[in-house]
Amino acid sequence: MSLLAQLDPLKAEALAALLAATDLPALEQTKGAFLGGDGKFTALMKQLGSLPKEERPAAGKAINAVKAELETALAARRSELELKAALPKEPTDWTLPGRRLAVGRLHPLTQVTDDIVRAFRKLGFVVADGPEIEDEYHCFDALNTPADHPARDSQDTFYVGDNSKPASQNGKLPLLRTHTSSVQIRVMKSQPPPIRIIVPGRVYRRDNADATHNPTFHQIEGLYVDKQVTVGDLKGTVEAVFKDVLGSDVKLRFRPHYFSYTEPSLEIDFTNALVKKLGKDWLEIAGCGMVHPQVFENVGYDPEVWTGWAFGFGIERIAMLRYGITDIRLFYENDVRFLRQF
């Protein structure tokens, strides 16, 4: 059979063999069987020299054309098989649950505190803090609390000290601060006005734990002292912060009240869709007022020059309202099913 006559059957055989190879090793074997040094196609090419000289160019051209064709087919088949080899052995079920890394959550009280702090910081407030173990001076005296005020009572306030040793007279023991307002005094005593601070932190009251009480809880305090600060400023700032924290549909009202360290003193009620859902018109949320001149005198500020306002509220209460939490103790149990919800 002439060389050219062998060419087409060999090509057909090679193409069939390439298709028959079902993986990459088999394909490489097939390639060797035809195009390798001992391959059938190589053998055919070697016969080229035995042809008459005038037939060689045409035969060479035909052989090269077939070789190119085979190599193209080989490359195509190789890509096909490479793709097949890359696929996982089992098909992927994209509905399977993925492999998850744990993501921890910040405590809801932290999140609420952060939101309130952020709202105040937009207005130029900075965060301050102070000790939780306080003395009567910072917690009560300097805040104009009357000497006989029930808040100082050991019924309501935790005093720190060894019970086996006799307590000093008049309860001069250190105490756990009952409000963050003690930090007002520390800050005003340590720096001159103007002042613009907020103070988040733990406070303590001698209440047995129940759904709405825990001996430990958190407050946030705001204090602004400057020249020509007015009740109007107080209202404006409080409104701005509560709209930021509780949503722009929140409405506030200010009611006269009594705190020893502010005058006038006000209580703040708020309402929004949530409060209405609870079946109430207003919910009490915070206390505030203009810093009492006596407090300014106590820290050495001249009340004729400086005025200011302060306000404070419980962080748990805000968090409970925001998330619909009904038992304050949940905050301190740290049940992960609770923590993961926020």
């Binding site: 207005l123 407030f125 965060v127 800050v187 103007p194 109007g232 400023d233 006038p264 001149p293």
Partner: peptide, 30 residues
């Protein structure tokens, strides 16, 4: 200031216009 509080109560705190936050920027190491 106690008299001023009485005036505020009777005048009506709700009638005092709110003023937008203004004034100094605070400073504290914490």
């Amino acid at each position: 200031v106690d008299l001023i509080e009485e005036i505020a109560r009777l005048y009506g705190v709700d009638k005092i216009p709110s003023t937008a936050p203004r004034g100094a920027v605070g400073a504290h190491p914490f």
